[in-house]
Design a binder for these strands. Structure first.
Lengths: 206, 206
DNA sequence: ACTATCTTTCAGAAACTTCTGAAAGAACGC
DNA sequence: GCGTTCTTTCAGAAGTTTCTGAAAGATAGT
């Protein structure tokens, strides 16, 4: 008789994990294959080389090479060498928190920093004109510029706060995020949560 | 003589803002056009209708309709009606913090919740087998399964913490995120930051 | 300096996402 | 119930991202 509770063998379980992690790729802002390669290294404990990755995930050499390099750039895997073997091996950061910190650090750098810079730039080029009585601008336009200027300010202060938080999470002082989490729990808990989330989700949709 | 400091007119400034916000689309997990439509509504103060959006962003009716609907689903814009006008108008959430909360709420629901569910599922299907002396499994495989099991546990506890934090940020108790930010500043500041981020970024890359 | 082994690059192919516009569907007033 | 006005849908077109595989580039041993 076949078992009724479907127990998974090692390979099947690993494949499932890899697939799930691959689906999360979009959320981290990386490609599916990159995420799958990372998942594979993460659950493989010690290092794998390019051929092993290619073989296990059935991807081309080029793809494997590019994905591994990109993961190195993100700082969530590292090179490792084995004595008497010329191949390069790769090992994933094994601490989930450290891994997450690396991702946050990278996304701040790639996404938030340039955004803040651009916002400042627009602000510089508009705020002069939005002052009362600025010459060569009619009243309606001046008002709209002023409003845009205010919105820019709000966004800037928001993203600067986000960046400040992120930088602290990421700081090498250590388990910043974990500490923050439990800290937050104390201060913001009260009556709300699960119930409210569900209710709020309804309130819309026609 | 032409001005040497390039001051922007209202429309140019708005266009720049829209373009920047569009570039951030990937980071929020939405399409470029969706983000642009949102940006337009955000800086336009009161509601615009479908034709105004089409005209301003030069997009097709179908695209405008789909983007607006998707933004409604995310809960960051809302329908608005004008007396004596059969057209539907749309207005963006004007509070940046509220907007961000809506995004976090939605991403938790779409990305983190299903991930946690999947992780549990795999765990259920492997943990039984990873116990010492489980029948029908050789030692090497048992060990690897045990390791996978541990990794799954770490991930689960990580994502449950993330979800807990997110839920609190999102809670209607109010400006949870802002409060959290200043709170964090006090507890985690010390010697680190800007300097360290720069240093850490170097340490890799060959 | 040659050969063997391993890594990176990149042009074109394949896969996937987003957009368009015309047609179908709703909602309203008369 | 019929015409008008506005909204949604969806098949195919356009655009974008990701992947492949072969060729070029490194590195090391002899």
């Amino acid at each position: 008789m076949a078992p009724t509770t479907p127990q998974l063998g090692l390979r099947e379980a690993q494949d499932r994990f890899i697939a799930i992690w691959g689906q999360m790729a979009g959320a981290w802002g990386i490609s599916r294959t990159m995420a799958e390669v990372h998942a594979l290294l993460f659950i493989s404990g010690d290092g794998l080389n390019t051929d092993e990755v290619m073989e296990r995930l059935q991807i081309s050499r080029g793809n494997a090479s590019m994905s591994l390099r990109a993961l190195l750039d993100w700082g969530i895997i590292e090179r490792a060498h084995k004595r008497g073997d010329r191949k390069e091996y790769f090992r994933a950061e094994q601490d989930v928190w450290a891994m997450f910190r690396a991702i946050v650090r990278e996304r701040l750098k790639r996404e938030v920093d340039p955004l803040v810079a651009s916002l400042y730039e627009i602000k510089d080029q508009t705020s002069a004109r939005s002052g009362v009585g600025a010459r060569g601008t009619d009243e309606t336009e001046r008002l709209a510029l002023e409003q845009l200027d205010n919105r820019l300010d709000e966004m800037l202060s928001f993203f600067k706060t986000v960046e400040g938080m992120g930088t602290r999470f990421v700081s090498p002082t250590g388990r910043g995020l974990l500490a923050a989490a439990s800290l937050l729990a104390k201060f913001t808990d009260s009556t709300d949560n699960a119930r409210d989330r569900a209710a709020a989700a309804e309130e819309r949709r026609r």
